[in-house]
Design a protein around this nucleic acid. Structure first.
Lengths: 116, 116
DNA sequence: CCGAATCCTCAGGGATACTG
DNA sequence: CAGTATCCCTGAGGATTCGG
């Protein structure tokens, strides 16, 4: 264990780890889900949909998702500015599994309700 | 945005966020996946399967998964000691979606190979 | 309206040594 | 073998201010 932490071959080629690094973080799951539900959302709309996020994290997270080719960013050069975000095809491919995960979460939340 | 960060109702009841908090972190995805692949793994076997993990994180992560009722911990009171980990039913319910995610990751990794 | 730029905090994680 | 116990550090994320 823990020798040569970086460049570890197991980690480098593990698709589970690969995928989790791409959708990990505090907000990526919810952003992908909301974009799926609404098809298109503007920057400000996303911000209101995630009440606990700061502009810094919103921008940063959107950039990462864009670089990983999970979302599209469409800029309207108007005044006032307008930017729309939507899922790419690759991003859409993640939806079935986020749906699965959400259903699981709903079930667990219900179970926890039962106890109280 | 960012007023009253904690106890935000949207976050408290969002099942997507709920689920991601339970399977987030650096190792949980891989641990669940390996436990699914092997059915039962001992502490040391898990450690060898995740070459980049430390004993501290391995123990800590296993405890969290156990508290969330995703894995079973079975202790054999022998010398030398022996502890086996396996998925609970609730944990098994996550497998279809981790499978989905893994397939997605494999496909992305292939695409990245193509470019090089 | 949609960010960029700073500065800062803190918790997730790492290294190392020790134990029943 | 299967952990504990410490100490430590990095980087994800937060608060605030400024700009086109």
């Amino acid at each position: 264990m823990q020798k040569k932490r970086k460049e570890c071959p197991e980690v480098a080629t593990c698709s589970v780890d690969y995928a989790f690094r791409r959708i990990g973080g505090k907000y990526k799951g919810r952003i992908l889900w909301y974009l799926h539900e609404h098809s298109i959302l503007r920057y400000g709309e996303l911000g209101r949909t995630l009440p606990d996020i700061t502009t810094k994290m919103l921008t940063q997270t959107l950039r990462e998702l864009e670089i990983d080719n999970l979302i599209n960013r469409k800029v309207y050069h108007e005044v006032p500015p307008k930017v729309e975000y939507s899922l790419t095809e690759v991003g859409e491919e993640l939806i079935p599994f986020i749906t699965h995960l959400k259903e699981w979460g709903d079930k667990q939340l219900e179970r926890e309700q039962m106890k109280n």
